[in-house]
Design a protein around this nucleic acid. Structure first.
Length: 644
RNA sequence: GGCGGUGUAGCUCAGUCGGUUAGAGCAUGCGGCUCAUAUCCGCAGUGUCCGGGGUUCAAGUCCCUGCACCGCCA
């Protein structure tokens, strides 16, 4: 059996701060890394930041600084976030590391020498404002969607990677290795994409357009562009071509990504590896998105919960547990503070925390806080619980390698629940009353202590701090990363006579009723502040300024949905003249309900195109939380009537 | 427009190869216990399995079709 394990997260693009998506990917990788350590594997865990490209240059400019200063700052934010989440990475790579850049150049040269990189000129539609090419389809009405200007035809020469050459090889490889890309839905997506002919990949930018990158070794007028630079980190971090880490860990490489970067990892990267003469990675593991909603209790707007901020509030372990328990790997999941509190209260405080607490309390009370021997007699319920523990351990070992973390955790919790039930069945407080039953009482509490120890070991990859805390109180302190399942989850591995300590609750409960009240109070306060603010002088306008608005009453003549748009409706409105207006109200009004409705229109708004449809004005509406209500007149007025 | 996914209890979701009375957790109600963080244990429900049609002795499951939402591609 191969007992090495190499896991990577994507290197995160430093044009934004770390958010929950980054955190989940990284925590998943961390749990996997810790799990394999627990199983006795030799592991290597890599994360880092992607720091080249024009978006970085733009972001730096926007921040009023130079690219190097900017990427240093953002990269540092990532590097400092991970320890707070107890991430156990062995290395943090940056694409601006000189060593990485050298490997990128080495591989470029190698692929170039092999004839898989060629030079070609092409013509395209180029927007000078954006400094980029557009395809016909990206243009709106023949104009750049950002600058509203027609692009110019421009010829540019660039280097291309002959990706198409490896299409058939890749299809065959994916078909031969069913778990090359998993879960299956993403494998199918890649295969679907590969049914169409693959185009070659443009991998360069002329330096006059982009200087913030790795220069091509065979043409210093160019730098390499995005993916060629970024993906190579997975091998450059291991010291490719001849690093010892590379020969040890690359053969077992696994990547974790979110579904938005499936194509580069599922298609570009394997073909790049093939062209460079490197064997493909073992597995690409793809997860879904966290949909952030604020739960059904609070519909507050403008109070976007930043999930990462909740980690210190509720505890890193609770946060990690929630993410791993709540998401089925591969599928999307919902994130809300309520759901987090719910999990914390019921799974962590009530089930696990309370089991630990009552076990230790009884040990203190009946055995002066020392681990008792396995007394006698042994009854069937003892054996049943022991079996349950074995079942949980097997399920755990089986599910985690399949990335089914929720199932592994469910199995652990079945064991925890069984232990709680066992206490009820055996009633230690009754046994304690009868001195003749001391042996039985010993058996019961020792059994419980052992279950708690196994629990501590099993939750260690998910909640390392909790595991350490539990083990310390059980009198067998071990660092989470030094735990080994075979040794430390072995039944009877506690030390008889060792002192255990009750200590504070592992997971204090959160009073959800109180939390909701506070939340509501906050929200009310914010709303009051908001309306106060808007009445303050800061944004006052003069009457003359108001007069510049040409507001007119009108009546809706026609209304229809704009295809493919969720929000937009196309309206014909009579405001003395007929106007076509696009309004973002489709989520609130059905077209048929609008015809004949009195509305107020801003008539002198500069016309604009929305989804390719011209809008000559704007309909006024009032916001009420998530709800939107049209502004109308008290009674019908003649279309075109001035509103003032 | 093409391809794919999803739709199951109040909420979040499982449901294998078509096979008994459709399940779990949370939330709710009732009962029990007192070691424990007002926790734990037991019991109890509640379903148009998105709609319609078909195949079959038998359909949540397979086929066709419609609707809704989502994703990928164009």
């Amino acid at each position: 059996m191969d007992t090495r394990f190499y896991i990577t997260t994507p290197i995160y693009y430093v044009n934004a701060e770390p958010h929950i998506g980054h955190a989940y990917t990284t925590i998943v990788a961390d749990v996997m890394n810790r799990f394999h350590r627990l199983m006795g594997y030799e592991t290597y865990f890599l994360t880092g930041t992607d720091e080249h490209g024009d978006k970085i240059v733009q972001a730096a400019e926007a921040a009023g600084t130079d690219p190097q200063t900017y990427v240093d700052r953002i990269s540092r934010m990532f590097r400092h976030t991970w320890p707070k989440l107890n991430i156990s990475n062995d290395h943090f790579i940056r694409t601006t590391d000189p060593a990485h850049m050298k490997v990128v150049q080495y591989i470029l040269q190698k692929v170039y020498d092999a004839g898989d990189i060629y030079f070609d000129t092409y013509k395209g539609l180029y927007c000078i404002g954006c400094e980029r090419f557009y395809t016909e389809k990206e243009l709106v009405d023949g104009k750049c969607p950002d600058h509203d200007k027609p692009p110019v035809e421009r010829e540019e020469a660039n280097y291309f990677f002959r990706m198409s050459k490896y299409q058939d090889w890749l299809i065959e490889h994916i078909e031969k290795h069913p778990d090359f890309i998993r879960p299956e839905r993403y494998r199918n997506e890649v295969l679907a994409f590969l049914r169409e002919p693959l185009e070659d990949l443009c991998i360069s930018r002329p330096k006059e357009r982009l200087s913030w990158g790795v220069p091509l070794p065979f043409d210093d007028r160019y730098v390499t562009y995005v993916w060629f630079d970024a993906l190579i980190n997975y091998v450059s971090a291991l010291g490719y071509p001849d690093g010892e880490l590379f020969s040890t860990f690359w053969p077992v490489a696994q990547h974790v990504i979110a579904k938005d970067i499936l194509k580069p990892h599922g298609i570009y990267w394997p073909t790049m590896l093939k062209a460079a003469g490197i064997e493909p990675y073992r597995h690409l593991n793809v997860h879904g998105y966290w949909k952030i909603n604020e739960g059904k209790m609070s519909k507050s707007r403008g109070t976007v919960v930043r999930p990462l901020d909740l980690a210190p509030v509720y505890g890193v372990d609770a946060f990690r547990y929630f993410l791993m328990r709540e998401m089925v790997f591969g599928l999307d999941a919902n994130f809300s503070e309520e759901a987090l509190i719910q999990r914390l209260n019921s799974d962590l405080a009530n089930d696990l925390g309370n089991l630990f607490s009552r076990t230790l309390a009884m040990t203190a009370k009946y055995f002066q806080g020392t681990v008792p021997p396995f007394g006698n007699p042994v009854l069937p319920e003892d054996q049943a619980l022991e079996r349950q523990v074995q079942d949980a351990v097997s399920a755990y070992r089986e599910e985690i390698p399949k990335w089914a973390f929720h199932k592994a955790l469910m199995a652990v919790w079945e064991m925890i629940n069984a232990a709680n039930k066992y206490i009820d069945q055996t009633g230690p407080w009754e046994l304690a009353k009868d001195p003749d039953k001391k042996g039985r009482l010993q058996r019961v509490l020792r059994t419980l202590l052992e279950v708690n120890k196994t629990t501590a070991v099993l939750v260690a990859p998910f909640m390392p701090q909790t595991a350490e805390k539990m083990l310390e109180r059980l009198g067998v302190p071990v660092k989470a990363l030094d735990l080994r399942l075979e040794r430390d989850a072995r039944w009877g591995s506690l030390v008889e006579g060792e002192r255990v300590q009750k200590g504070a609750a592992l997971f204090p409960r959160v009073d959800i009723k109180k939390w909701q009240q506070e939340k509501n109070a906050e929200e009310r306060k914010r709303n009051v502040e908001k309306s106060d603010e808007s009445q303050k002088t800061s944004d006052l306008i003069t009457f003359q300024e108001f007069q510049r608005l040409d507001l007119r009453a009108g009546v809706v003549l026609e209304a229809e949905r704009i295809p493919k748009s969720k929000k937009l409706l196309k309206l014909k409105v009579d405001i003395g003249e007929e106007r076509q207006v696009v309004a973002g109200i489709a989520e609130h009004y059905a077209p048929e309900d609008l015809v004949g409705k009195q509305v107020v229109v801003v008539a002198n708004l500069k016309p604009a195109k929305l989804m390719g449809v011209e809008s000559q004005g704007m309909i006024l509406a009032a916001h009420d939380g998530d709800v939107l209500k049209l502004v109308t007149t008290d009674a019908p007025v003649i279309p075109g009537g001035k509103v003032s």
